[in-house]
Simulated assay, not measured.
Amino acid sequence: MGVLTFQKETATAIPPAKMFKVFVLEADTAIPSIVPQAVKSVEIIEGNGGPGTIKKTTFAEVYKTKVEAVDKDNFKNSYSIIEAEPKLDVIEKISYEIEIVASPDGGSIIKSTSKYFPKGNSQINEEQVKTGAEKALGLFKAVEAYLLANPDAYN
């Protein structure tokens, strides 16, 4: 099986600069403080937050991610999940590319692409991938609700 790719666009009333700040630049502290029931902690293991940085994110599971690129001027970010506990038995890594663009109403459109790289000839369970995407959307919606209810936060 080859690389499994998903693309998604999500609209929000939050402007691009604020979305990028919360979900990329200050995500390590912002997300755990906004939704501590979902994200317990984010810890930098190696690096300074820029490309090449390795982070340990603790949900109910633990993920190690590698920052691939951060483009502050164009609100783009890419990173990969390189380890997971429990282990990703059939997945070598998962890569994410995110771009936040302005929408005509003053909000944002988050364009995301996720790529699942199988180990060898492994089969990736698409239902599990969809379940993970639904969890991520739920996390996004919780942060969005917080930002809408607290317009002065993270300015």
Score class of each variant (00 low, 15 high):
Lys64Asn: 10
Gly52Glu: 05
Asp89Trp: 11
Thr113Ala: 08
Tyr116Arg: 04
Val143Asn: 03
Leu88Trp: 05
Gly52Ala: 02
Ala133Gly: 07
Ile124Ser: 03
Lys119Ala: 07
Gly138Lys: 09
Tyr154Thr: 00
Glu127Ser: 14
Leu4Thr: 06
Ala102Tyr: 09
Ala84Phe: 11
Asn155Glu: 06
Lys130Gly: 02
Gln7His: 13
Lys21Pro: 01
Lys21Arg: 15
Pro16Glu: 04
Glu127Val: 13
Ala102Gln: 08
Asp71His: 03
Thr65Tyr: 02
Asp73Ser: 11
Val39Asp: 02
Asn77Glu: 04
Ser41Tyr: 00
Leu147Glu: 03
Phe20Trp: 02
Met19Glu: 02
Thr131Glu: 12
Lys111Thr: 04
Lys72Gly: 03
Tyr96Ala: 12
Pro51Leu: 11
Ala142Trp: 01
Ser112Phe: 13
Glu126Asp: 05
Ala149Phe: 04
Thr53Lys: 03
Thr65Ser: 10
Pro16Gln: 07
Glu97Pro: 01
Gly47Phe: 10
Ala84Asn: 07
Thr113Tyr: 10
Lys76Val: 04
Thr65Arg: 01
Leu147Pro: 00
Tyr79Arg: 07
Ile44Cys: 07
Ala136Lys: 06
Lys55Gln: 12
Tyr146Ala: 00
Pro104Asn: 15
Asp73Trp: 07
Ala17Ile: 11
Lys76Ile: 02
Ile110Pro: 01
Ile109Phe: 03
Met19Ile: 10
Lys64Phe: 14
Ser122Phe: 11
Pro86His: 08
Pro36Trp: 06
Ala17Phe: 08
Ala30Pro: 01
Ala69His: 13
Leu88Ser: 03
Val67Ala: 03
Ala84Gly: 14
Gly138Asp: 09
Lys130Ile: 08
Gly50Tyr: 09
Asn77Leu: 13
Val90Phe: 11
Met1Val: 09
Pro15Thr: 02
Ile124Gln: 07
Ala17Glu: 10
Ile91Ser: 04
Asn125Met: 12
Ile124Ala: 05
Ala30Asp: 00
Pro16Cys: 04
Thr53Asp: 07
Asn121Glu: 13
Lys66Arg: 15
Asp73Ile: 10
Ile31Pro: 01
Gly132Glu: 04
Ile110Gly: 02
